[in-house]
Amino acid sequence: MTAALSLKDVTLTHGDGEEIVLALDHVSLEVGPGELVAIVGPSGAGKSSLLAVAGALTPPTSGTVRLGELDLGTASRRELTRIRRERIGFVFQSGNLIPALTSLDQIRLPLTFGTFENPRDPRRLLAEVGMEHKADRRPHQLSGGERQRVGIARALVTRPQVLLVDEPTAALDRQRSQDVVALLAREAHDHGVATVMVTHDHDVLHHCDRVLEMIDGRLREPLAETA
């Protein structure tokens, strides 16, 4: 079966001359539809760089990134924007919700960026993440866990092929962290979304199908005690 997301021998460097920093060092990764892969590792290891490259936010210095059969290296800037809009969902730290919008409008928002063939129903999706009762609340009226639930719903409303999740439990207590990652796992499995989650939180890794460790820009299977 074709991987939903595939990185092959990807490197990413920042800076130039003697100041050059190798953020990703020949990284290869395949994530299948419905699979939840966690990437753990210390700060500065390259986890966010991996999300940036996989999410078409920045081009790799070398190597290839594919979404299904689509090679991102051949896409123009405008096409990359369209690919992010239609095929990739992002869940950011603390939700990164828009302050002016209610929970329901947060989920409607991506649908205003373009036309979508078969989007999910925002109200039903809000109910699915357990936030129906706070549909008219704005982000400052929600707890950290609630903001993340709305952020997850927002990322899924366009039925993306790939979901990229950046430290979803960074600001949450233990129980809420478990709830949020369990929700991610359920959505990934139920809707066939290839999900890559970057996290520091080792307590939530049991929800994931696979755990990889990133150190100094290199991706590897973790030692048993870290998984």
Binding site: R78, F90, N96, I98, P110, T112, F113, G114
Partner: peptide
């Protein structure tokens, strides 16, 4: 700036 970065990451076009 942060909000606009989020919108752009989500696929909002410059024209939008």
């Amino acid at each position: 700036r942060q909000e606009i970065a989020v919108l752009r990451a989500m696929g909002a076009s410059t024209r939008y």
